[in-house]
Amino acid sequence: MSINTIERILWDIHHDPQLAARFREAPDAVLDSYGFADLERKLVKELDVRVIADRGASEMLLFNAWLAINGPGSVPEYLGKMARVRAG
């Protein structure tokens, strides 16, 4: 698991509103350019923020990227996903 690559795509999405929009509409096309392994790809595509955080990604970066994709109204959903029992 390359947490660095995951953090890279989270930053890119947070920093580039057009990339965030492309990810929303067609995530596979965006993911193709990052060279993820299957599990990493699945976690990012599904925005499984709890598991991504448990594996060491910055929660601030995760939150920023989540908001870039889903908008400020999605904060309760983000917190709901983060509140699941931490893995391992």
């Binding site: 953090e7 890279r8 930053w11 890119d12 947070h14 910055s58 601030m60 970066l61 920023n64």
Partner: peptide, 9 residues
Amino acid sequence: DHYTINGPY
């Protein structure tokens, strides 16, 4: 910074 100005790069 909060991953706003600078990124993991």
